[in-house]
Nucleic acid binder design. Structure first.
Lengths: 237, 237
DNA sequence: ACCCGTCAACTGGTTGGACCAGTAGATGTT
DNA sequence: AACATCTACTGGTCCAACCAGTTGACGGGT
């Protein structure tokens, strides 16, 4: 039994969360002006500075556009927000109108994972390959404990993505694994099956070490394949 | 000749830029504490609130970890930053130690574009396919003007990614196209060749409309293929 | 000599209020 | 109706103070 630290959100964090949910859930239409900073401050019962810090973060995410003199307007996040929104969306739970986000993340994970494995087999250096082999071993060691295997699996994929030498893939990997999204919200049986397939993981590592790019790609692809049909269950209207 | 608006950065924006560059360029090692907010404020000659807003944005990007009572520590952005860092990195120019970022973005674009085309052919609805066909036409209309073609091309791909129904792909697409990164910093001759191939674009649209998933995928893949070798030139040590 | 509680000197978090700067709409003139 | 102007907003910045945690040094205990 492990104790999770009690989450202590600062005032501006909470304001951020509220505004994020309001924007993402579509309570404000695109281009609609948000209440003024002073107004939000009184509405939330906090100081204006706290509101400003929250708005800065929303701006950073691409959810709003603030402009001096004019009102702060809501943006259409589908066209302006970056992938980082996915990790912050995990905290929004079923507020958002996208119940398929879990499937989407898995699909992207499969797509990038396969290509990263290919590139890794193509151009990783010996030390990176050694790290991958070691990660596979650590993964095999953890075999009975599912939670531990999950962590080891993630560490292994990180090594592979690092080995691909593609910074964009690495950053995307971070976006996809951060938050409890990919891990917690999709504990599907398929995920368990993937985790248990130690042999396939070993084989993937061997293919990469052998420099077999097409082989590594297809091995990774079949390992990460998203189960067809049976979309993740929706919890809202 | 069009006039770009003169960029007017607020104080906190500038502080953000400086700190971002300092962190990304590795001037601060991972886990190293940043100077205190009060100290930074006097160093930059600005108010503490401006520094705080900048730090909030850095935290949002995954570049630093602030904790009350303790110092604000720099994180290893390779393991904590999300894909959004890519769009902000465009402003960092040659500050960062990764000269291959342009190639990386193109690789990821190809990877996601191909899978999005596949999914789009698989499960897009008629209206989405009509939008794609229309976008192709608009693209063909712009044929002499390279700049206009670039814009139309981006609009077309957006339609395709939207048609894939994958939110994660859409957000990643935003991350990759935002900033002048993918567009400006890689005006390679290859890019021009891709833009001029109107026939291939038309064919891709037809394959999607026909619901030919494998065909659309391979068409997209060959259209987006990143040129081998000849890494983007480096402008720093 | 070592261990451990206490306390002071940091750190970030929050508040209030004041003023600057830019925008947009109402106002009044032509 | 068209236009300049002026006012009442908007966000941007600053100051100054205080709250709330963390850290490490100091000193009394064992």
């Amino acid at each position: 039994m492990t104790f999770d630290p009690i989450p202590r959100h600062s005032v501006s964090d909470q304001v951020f969360g509220r505004l994020r949910d309001a924007v993402v859930s579509g309570r404000y239409a695109a281009d609609e002006p948000l209440p003024s900073e002073r107004e939000l401050a009184t509405l939330f019962g906090v100081n204006r500075h706290a509101v400003r810090e929250a708005l800065r973060r929303l701006q950073q995410l691409g959810l709003v556009k603030v402009s001096q003199g004019g009102a702060t307007r809501v943006l259409d996040w589908r066209s302006t927000a970056g992938l980082d929104l996915a990790m912050v969306l995990a905290g929004a739970e079923d507020v958002l109108p996208v119940a398929t986000l879990g499937r989407d993340v898995l699909e992207m994970r499969a797509c990038i994972g396969a290509d990263a494995a290919r590139l890794c087999a193509e151009r990783s250096d010996p030390s990176a390959r050694a790290a991958i082999a070691a990660a596979v071993e650590a993964y095999a060691q953890a075999v009975p404990d599912l939670e531990q295997m999950g962590a080891a699996d993630r560490a292994l994929w990180r090594r592979i993505v690092e080995g691909s030498g593609n910074i964009a893939y690495l950053l995307a990997f971070n976006s996809l694994t951060a938050g409890t999204l990919a891990i917690g919200s999709v504990p599907a049986p398929r995920r368990t099956a993937e985790l248990l397939d130690v042999t396939a993981h070993r084989r993937l590592s061997e293919l990469i070490t052998a420099g077999d790019a097409p082989g590594a790609e297809s091995a990774a692809r079949s390992l990460l394949a998203v189960p067809a049909g049976r979309e993740s269950e929706s919890t809202h209207s």
